[in-house]
Write a protein that binds this DNA or RNA. Structure first.
Length: 567
RNA sequence: GCGCCCGUAGCUCAGUUGGAUAGAGCGCUAGUUUCCGGAACUAGAUGUCGCAGGUUCGAAUCCUGCCGGGCGUACCA
């Protein structure tokens, strides 16, 4: 990568003048404004400031020692100490030629691959998956794809909610209220119905608790019912994940960790990490300004453990099984306090673990009224119904645009467009913002949407249906037009964009990059004829088309979105 | 009360170590098609970046205070 090459040479040059320079802060970025050049570095100003040096003077000395003649046309110092680099077009042309041979163009694998566990989705047994699961599922899957693309070993881990007091009610309902026919036709709705029926009747509370105790004590009948509910739920999960094209390496329920909960609480007490308070066992954080009045319960006063304990057991299991460098939890922002506590307790408890623990949180999905997204009747929106609607709306759009397509082809395309639009609308905004769910916007097929990117891809493919593919090894690349150079330079920063996404766990950087790419391609497409050009120019431009197509396809794939030849 | 997050164009949102003149889409106005998919492209108008201080050569970004909103805050996850 040219960018990282400039960066490493700049670091060397800086080291000759500032021996204690923070190397990792010396960064080279694409220019914010192309008139300044191709790449820029702002690092010297901060570096000089911290040491009371004159930034401009430092820049001059560093540039004197910087050997970039083989890459750069020019290296300029601007304003108070910006460094601006202009790349030789020959170097760009060589980079494109090299990219044609790379498996993933413009991406170099991480120099130190890491083992990273991503915990996301986490649906609950006997409940329908709903909009609340969509952000976690889509974000987590995208992060997994991106980290894998960068060469890391990723373990996707689905932590299923298969345990808790609700199972007392569900088992009681199963035994006394179950409608077999309804269970056969729509098991999840029936499970939801019996749960609600029991839950709304206070007189059944004791009986439900009794069923729960029996389940916890290993009663055969109740265990069988419980396993049946898990099985039915897993079928539902698999259908949804299949439609979303999401896969997990590991799927374990909370119940898997039940055998370890007691020993963990005892160990925490033995190590004086936890203590008794108001009948419960809690961990306190007296040394932490933020948590000193926020104890975490690890055993409730009724003797049962809660999710903090389960999560500790899960953490220990994962650390032992996978020895990860990093564990990422993708959940709603409302769980921030829980994860702060969890990570702190785990550090007290297991001080050998050197990996990172990250809580990657996201905001809520709101309806058009600005309140949490619900159906008109106030129910939570089921995920399968949401996917149905996305596909139906896309089908309508595809049918209007391309009525002559076969029915089955329209179906296939509208799945790609509909699911893609849904995913993209979620991934393209800053994950920490709440976002307003808007069908028309995500499928409006204009602006920063998946269909716009997919459309750009179909235009690339359309060109190749009308011409013969050149021998890529022999094409002489020659970039003259401003639109060609603008497109080519942007293509080159694909890998850097993925790295930034991985750094902050923010796929919206990639969305912005792809949107920018599609725009540059459209401008190139408008002003640079490909098929009608003479052979040399045509083949050179076909390289740009081919690489744009590959980067769009890989980039969308990193978001879990597919492309289509026609739409 | 305490903690976290948010407040950027009429609407929905971006904004990469603090960095160069704050950007998109929608909507609005005016254009572009003998040419590879017009689901496109070009041009134009629109901002006290919630308010007030501070740090800095430089602040939407960092610090302090205030206003407004969302969420969390011991036995749900």
């Amino acid at each position: 990568m040219i960018q990282s090459e400039i960066e490493s040479r700049l670091r060397q040059a800086v080291a000759q003048h500032v021996d204690d320079a923070e190397q990792e802060k010396i960064l080279v970025r694409p220019c914010s404004d192309p008139k300044h050049g191709d790449f820029q570095s702002n690092a010297l100003m901060a570096l000089a400031k911290k040491r009371g040096m004159n930034p401009r003077h430092l820049a001059e000395k560093v540039v004197d020692d910087l050997r970039l003649g083989d890459i750069c046309q020019s290296v300029d110092i601007a304003g108070p100490g910006f460094l601006n680099f202009e790349i030789k077009s020959k170097v760009i042309e060589e980079a494109l030629a090299a990219a044609l041979k790379e498996k993933i163009p413009f991406v170099s694998p991480a120099s130190e691959p890491q083992a990273i566990i991503i915990d996301f989705s986490s649906p609950n047994v006997a409940k329908p998956m709903h909009v609340g699961h969509i952000r976690s599922t889509i974000l987590g899957d995208s992060l997994a794809r991106i980290l894998r693309m960068l060469g890391h070993k990723v373990i996707t881990d689905n932590h299923i909610g298969d345990w808790g007091t609700q199972f007392g009610m569900l088992i009681l309902g199963w035994k006394t209220k179950l409608n077999k026919a309804a269970l056969d036709s729509d098991p999840i709705s029936e499970l939801e119905r019996i749960y609600k029926e029991i839950n709304s009747d206070d007189s059944l509370r004791e009986a439900a608790r009794y069923e729960l105790v029996k389940l916890q004590q290993g009663d055969e009948e109740n265990l069988k019912i419980w396993r049946g509910m898990i099985e039915l739920s897993q079928q539902q999960f698999d259908r949804v994940y299949g439609r979303l094209d999401v896969q997990f390496n590991e799927t374990l329920g909370e119940s898997f960790y039940n055998p370890y909960l007691e020993e963990i609480v005892e160990e925490l007490c033995a190590k004086n990490i936890a203590g008794v308070s108001e009948g419960a066992i809690v961990v306190r954080f007296p040394d932490d300004d933020q948590l000193n009045d926020k104890p975490a319960i690890v055993r409730k006063s009724d003797g049962a453990s809660n999710y903090t304990t389960t999560d500790l057991a899960t953490l220990r299991y994962r650390v032992e099984k996978w020895s990860p460098n990093k564990i990422i939890y993708v959940t709603d922002g409302r769980q921030q306090l829980h994860f702060q506590q969890l990570f702190k307790i785990f550090r007290f408890w297991n001080n050998q673990f050197a990996g990172q623990l990250q809580h990657v949180w996201f905001g809520s999905i709101l309806g058009p009224d600005g309140k949490p997204f619900k159906t008109r009747s106030g129910e939570t929106v089921r995920l399968d119904e949401l996917l149905d609607e996305a596909e139906q709306r896309a089908f309508k759009a595809v049918s209007e645009k391309n009525p002559e397509l076969e029915e089955s082809e329209k179906r296939t395309i509208s799945k790609i467009i509909g699911i893609g639009a849904l995913k993209y609308s979620d991934l393209s905004s800053n994950r920490q913002s709440d976002y307003v769910f808007d069908w028309d916007k995500m499928l409006s097929l204009q602006g920063n949407t998946a269909p716009y990117l997919q459309y750009a891809y179909t235009r690339v493919r359309s060109i190749f249906r009308k011409t013969t593919e050149p021998n890529w090894d022999k094409v002489v690349i020659n970039l003259d037009a401003a639109e060609e150079l603008s497109l080519a330079k942007h293509l080159m920063s694909f890998g850097h964009t993925l790295e930034m996404v991985a750094e902050d766990n923010r796929p919206n950087y990639l969305c912005n990059y792809l949107y920018d790419l599609a725009g540059r391609f459209s401008r190139f497409y408008e002003s640079c004829p490909v098929i009608k050009a003479g052979q040399a120019e045509r083949e050179s431009r076909l390289v740009l088309c081919e690489l744009t197509g590959r980067v769009l396809q890989r980039g969308l794939d990193a978001l879990g979105i597919q492309v289509t030849e026609v739409m």
